[in-house]
Write a protein that binds this DNA or RNA. Structure first.
Length: 671
RNA sequence: GCACCCGUAGCUCAGCUGGAUAGAGUAUCUGACUUCGAAUCAGAGGGUCGCAAGUUCGAAUCUUGCCGGGUGUACCA
């Protein structure tokens, strides 16, 4: 039995006993992990709550300890329970039958549900405007989304990963304005430039990064240029003209660059839905129709919002008469972003009644395919082995917390159309931004105002060109890791050294972004981000590498065969005695910690919080480091003890490897 | 104005639906490589959990009010 299963059985027993003995119905109650193994494996502080309820129901005053004693007797009947202790004022501390538990879990799958295709869910993340290179703030989004997606898969969900491409928005328009009216380039010239950049080892998205910032600066003084923006935007939205073609090329090239950047971090997608198709396939019209029919939207014929279609949004009341309303269609007849997003979310949930057309976009090195949406003219491409996209049972949108308000409106809009799915089907996975300390911003060569310098942090801005570009940071991490690998494994081939350096860089960056909980603003610090010591991905990888190294040695010596490991499986009195000794408790605490992976992954999925898994992984790595320091596994002369150490070390390394894998971090062969 | 988030060790952060002595990393100081590799390990110092009330067997956690910081609040996307 796994811990989760044991917990379930114990809970049920407590509820039944409480009912039978005290006549009280207790609903949910906490099960916690005691602070130390010496205090037990699962603790239930349930007696306090029961005492209260008994008093309410019968007027009888019972001591929590007394209640706990009664429950203890009931729990001790289970054969997987070693003993139960009543501690403190009424804690119920359950100790497992250690030998039995290890016997059952030693060879078990640590993530029993992984790979089982349950209901389909959609996770949207990244969604970087395709007009520049990705910076570290975008990477936080992608790493969070990708890790969360992996967590969901580990709990048995079928996951579709989407990266929304806003290829017809103002941000793309800005860069297009830059190309057309500052650089005076047409699409041919841009293609030439692209080829030239590629040949000289530079990238298109970096060029756009600078150009975008330049356009932003020019706008401040050049009103004429700013006027071009609306013009260009309109042409892009409309499609079928030279400007739109140019924009499409620019956006697509940036998408390719961003996908490459993300692939460096083992982040991949299944689908790239584009805004251009949402427009051209008239998703909004369909949603609009439904909203009108259902009466969740109404036409304003007078007042400030005269001529607009608005959706009431009661939660947000203010002084303004129309504060509670959200405009979806402007008085000039065009639809707002919120309106388009409602239609898009409906598609994701499979309730729009329209679908995109699709084209194969790219095959990743690992064989995974990524598809992109295409317009109506390519309808014939639909049936050529195209997978089914959208229609998720639940949809997760990884979007930074500053978008909470618009996200809330979109979710309520969708809920108004589909009350049966309600607001629960759509989850905003909000996270705080990655900002720069004023010092770091100046270190990057940015002139700050006196006011900015006094602030706790300054936010990154693509528009201003202020930010740490993802590829730059990965490059720095790889270079630093390579130097370290070089100093330790000078004899390895260059290819191998680079591969290891790459794995370490990915581990460092992913862990760095995951160790903070979502609602913590990360004030970016180069020293911390580039560190390989302490609470880092590298630390966790090191622990796993050492574990593998021990097992490699074991195999070489051939001293411990798998059969010998199974020796432990017989619950001999020897093993029992050992496990209940003081060193045994130490070994046991390693085993039980390694067994908490599944529980932790579920907790992370339920709380929508990948940091929970990251913290666990670090704790596990740390515990294993200590474990192999305290216990000499290969050199252990007592055969029984050695077998036990091997089994437990194996549990730890498999758990650690699986945890790292779920975080998207690989274990190098050496480091 | 209103809404949401944050305030925990010098610094950066955890702390699960209230529970056991509030924990990590880092920095500082002191130890440990003839041992399964020291990107490691051990030890030490370091806390009025922003402030004040309240709820109760029990509060870093829940409620209220203050103080300080952040982010939103468009016929922008």
């Amino acid at each position: 039995m796994t811990i989760t299963e044991i917990q379930k059985v114990l809970r049920k027993a407590i509820i039944e006993t409480a009912k039978a003995q005290f006549g009280v119905e207790i609903g949910s109650f906490a099960a916690e992990t005691p602070p130390k193994t010496e205090l037990g494996d699962i603790a239930f502080p349930v007696a306090f709550e029961l005492a209260k309820q008994i008093k309410q129901a019968t007027g009888e005053k019972k001591n929590p300890r007394e209640i706990a004693e009664t429950l203890k007797t009931a729990l001790e009947l289970f054969d997987f329970v070693g003993k139960v202790e009543v501690a403190g004022a009424g804690y119920l501390n359950v100790f497992f039958d250690r030998a039995r538990f290890i016997d059952e879990n030693a060879a078990a799958n640590l993530l029993p549900n992984a790979g089982i295709a349950g209901p389909k869910v959609c996770v949207e993340h990244t969604s970087v405007n395709p007009n520049k290179a990705a910076h570290i703030g975008h990477v936080r989004n992608s790493v969070l989304g990708d890790t969360f997606q992996r967590i969901l898969k580990s709990t048995g969900k079928q996951v579709e990963v989407q990266n929304y491409i806003d290829n017809t928005g103002v941000q793309v328009a800005d860069v297009v304005v830059g190309f057309m009216f500052i650089e005076n380039m047409n699409i041919l010239a841009i293609k030439e430039l692209d080829a030239h950049l590629t040949a000289s080892g530079k990238s298109f998205d970096y060029y756009c990064w600078d150009l975008y910032a330049k356009v932003g600066r020019e706008y401040q003084t050049d009103e004429e240029l700013k006027a071009k923006r609306a013009e260009v935007l309109h042409l892009i939205e409309e499609g079928g003209n030279e400007t739109a073609d140019l924009a499409d090329f620019v956006a697509t090239r940036n998408v390719e660059c961003i996908l490459e950047t993300m692939e460096r971090l083992s982040i991949r997608y299944d689908l790239l839905p584009r805004e251009s198709e949402i427009l051209h396939l008239h998703f909004w019209d369909k949603a609009f129709e439904q909203m009108k029919q259902l009466g969740v939207i109404h036409y304003e014929s007078e007042g400030k919002q005269s001529g607009c279609w608005v959706m009431p949004f009661e939660e947000h009341t203010g002084d303004d008469e129309n504060e509670g309303d959200k405009i979806l269609v402007r008085s000039n007849g065009t639809v707002t972003y919120t309106g388009k997003d409602i239609a898009y979310q409906m598609w994701k949930l499979g309730i729009l009644g329209l679908d995109f057309n699709y084209r194969h976009f790219h095959k990743y090195a690992n064989g995974q395919d990524v598809w992109i949406t295409v317009g109506p003219q390519a309808a014939s491409l639909r049936d050529a082995g195209v997978p089914t996209f959208g229609g998720g049972e639940t949809i997760y949108n990884v979007i930074d917390t500053r978008q909470s308000y618009p996200q809330d409106i979109v979710r309520k809009g969708v809920a108004a159309i589909s009350p049966e799915r309600g607001e629960k089907a759509s989850i905003h996975l909000a996270y705080e931004m990655v900002a720069l300390s004023p010092a770091a911003a100046e270190e990057l060569g940015f002139a700050l105002s006196d006011e900015d310098r006094k602030r706790p942090f300054v936010e990154m801005s693509g528009r201003k060109g202020l930010g740490v570009k993802a590829d730059d940071l990965i490059d720095r991490l790889e270079a630093k890791a390579l130097a370290e690998v070089e100093s330790r494994h000078a004899d390895a081939s260059d290819e191998e050294k680079q591969h290891i350096a790459h794995q370490l860089a990915v581990g460092a960056l992913r862990y760095f972004l995951l160790k903070f909980t979502r609602n913590t603003v990360i004030v970016f610090d180069f020293n911390e981000a580039l560190s390989f010591e302490g609470e880092t991905g590298c630390f966790c990888q090191y622990s796993a590498v050492r574990a593998n190294s021990i097992f490699r040695k074991l195999d070489e010596n051939n001293s411990v065969e798998s059969s010998e490991r199974r020796l432990l499986a017989c619950e001999s009195s020897e093993v029992r005695a050992l496990l209940n000794s003081e060193t045994g408790t130490d070994i046991w605490s390693m085993a039980i910690l390694a067994s908490r992976l599944d529980e932790t992954v579920h907790a992370a999925a339920t709380a929508n919080e990948p940091a929970i898994l990251a913290k666990y992984t670090f704790t596990l790595a740390k515990a294993f480091n200590l474990f192999y320091h305290n216990h000499k596994i290969i050199a252990e002369t007592d055969e029984t003890k050695r077998a036990l150490l091997v089994v437990v070390a194996d549990m730890a390394r498999r758990s650690l490897t699986a945890a790292l894998d779920t975080l998207g971090i690989e274990v190098p062969v050496k480091m």
